[in-house]
Every structure is written in C-alpha cells, then in structure tokens.
C-alpha cells in the first residue's frame, strides 16, 4: 500500500491553492479542455470555421469603420493587420473568460459528485480557448503574408505575450467562475464588464493616442502590455518595456487576488451550486 497518500479532511478554510494536487491531476485539465473543444464544434453546423470566421469578420468591421472614420495612426502597419493582431488576443480572452465563468455551473454534475482540484474546471475552459487562438493566429499569419509586413526575429517573443494574455484570462476566469456560483449576478455583469474592458484596451486603436505619461496608468490593464507587446513582436517594432513591465506586474497581482478569492469560495462550491 502506498503510505504516501494520506488524505486529511478538516473544516479549515484557506487551505491553500494545492499546486501539488493540481499537478497530479494535470491530465484531467487536458481531458476537460479536449472535451470542451470537441463538443463545441461537434454541435455546430460549420464547425471549426467559426474559429476563423470570428476574427475575420470582426477585423473587417473594424477596418471599415475605423480606417474610414477615425483614421488612427498605426505607422507603417496596415490598419487591418494592426487590428487583427490585437483581436487575436482579445477574442481569446473574451471567449475563455466567458466560458470559464460559467464552467462550475455548467459542470455542476461533476463538482457535486467527484472530488478533484476545483481550479481545474475554469483552467480547462481557458485552455480550450487556446484552440481558437491558434486559428486566429493562422488568419493573422495569412494577413501578414498578404501585406508582406516582413518576418522579424522578435516574433519569437509572441508566446511570451500569449502567456500574459493567458494568465490574465485564467485569473478572471477563475475569479468569475467562483463568484458566479454564489452570485448569479455575474452572468449579467460579465458581458457588460467585457464590453468596457474591450474599449479600455488598445484593440482597435493604438496606445499612442493615450498621453505619454498617462500610458503608465493605462498599462495597469494587463491587456495593454500583452497586446502592445504582441504587436511589437509581430511587426518588429520597438518594445515599450515600461508598459509591459507594469502590465506583467498587474497580471501577477490579478492572479494572486483571483486565487485568494477562489480559495475562499472553493469550500462551499458543491453546497451552493
């Protein structure tokens, strides 16, 4: 018998995040994400095409509206490519936070019948979102080829900014998933919040329209650093490391706060659903 495994059951709250157990159950994260992806496209008529259609259509709309009426200065970068670069991350964050926030209520049959580290549920939902991101990047790649924006060594840094976006999405996904169990208000508040967030992020406009000094305040939004960093990497532009630094710090704080809230709410999950 494996004497190493000793499960202690106590009434104590604040028992920590349980990274060890999360690691032991890492395969379940994969399985749940795989299930989410598989089911999402199994029930749709055009399947995977949705993952491509969404960035393409949104980019088209942005291009028509903003390059005609707003005329943002995006330097040498064609506006469509500029917007799509921001949209890839945004669509991922938007989609995965939305999916993750409903993940406990959507998986209530699991949560009330089997124990596993609860964090797995929202994390798997966010990972499933990465699948769509891959398709967004395919579209982006095609567009870069079309506009011949050139290939840059800095593109190797793209995963870093995807990671920033991932951490941000996972933090909010975890936060809202747990809050949603207790406060069904989340369902109504979240779409509104995401809308505001989208406007507050440099997706269809460049950060340069924000003042030189206020950009540091702007960078408290972790997506600012992630999106600007991603654009610099993709288009070979200079990095604004100060902004990226502030956003990274902000993402880390967001993650810590979300985990703290999650651990606090986790115990009652099965009783509240």
């Amino acid at each position: 018998m494996n004497e190493a495994v000793l499960t202690k059951i106590t009434p104590n709250r604040f028992s920590g995040v349980g990274l060890g157990e999360l690691w032991r159950y890492r395969e379940l994260i994969y399985f749940l994400a795989w299930r989410d992806v598989k089911i999402r496209y199994k029930q749709t008529a055009i399947g995977i095409a949705w993952a491509i259609l969404q960035p393409v259509v949104t980019t088209l709309i942005f291009s028509v509206i903003f390059s005609r009426y707003a005329n943002f200065d995006t330097g040498q970068v064609p506006y469509a490519a500029f917007a799509l670069a921001g949209l890839t991350l945004w669509l991922f964050v938007h989609g995965s936070v939305t999916m993750a926030s409903g993940s406990f209520t959507g998986n209530s049959n699991l949560v009330t019948k089997v124990w596993f580290p609860r964090l797995i549920v929202p994390i798997a939902a966010v990972i499933a979102g990465l699948f769509d991101l891959v398709f967004s990047f395919v579209v982006l790649g095609a567009m870069l080829g079309w506009y011949a924006t050139g290939w840059h060594l800095s593109m190797l840094l793209v995963p870093l900014f995807v990671l920033m976006g991932f951490v941000t999405a996972a933090s909010l996904g975890i936060l809202f998933a747990a809050l949603n169990v207790r406060f069904r208000d989340v369902r109504f508040a979240l779409p509104f919040l995401l809308q505001v967030w989208m406007i507050a992020s440099p997706i269809f406009y460049p950060s340069s329209i924000i003042g030189e000094r206020t950009r540091f305040v702007f960078a408290v939004n972790p997506l600012v650093g992630a999106i600007e960093g991603l654009r610099s990497a993709v288009f070979g532009l200079p990095f604004d490391w100060a902004v990226i630094g502030i956003s990274t710090l902000s993402a880390a704080i967001l993650l810590a706060v979300s985990l703290a809230v999650f651990v606090h709410l986790e115990d009652d999950l099965a009783d509240m659903i």
């Binding site: 495994v5 009434p11 115990d267 099965a270």
Partner: peptide, 20 residues
C-alpha cells in the same frame, strides 16, 4: 460526500490512508 471531499465538514476531522 464529506469523505469524498466534495464538501467540507462543519466540524470534526477525518483521515483516509491510501488512494481514494
């Protein structure tokens, strides 16, 4: 449910030795 860790006890403790 308490022994399966689905819900926590309000008080009291339990220990389980081995893979559950």
């Amino acid at each position: 449910k308490v022994l399966s860790r689905i819900t926590r006890p309000s008080s009291g403790t339990a220990e389980i030795r081995g893979r559950v």
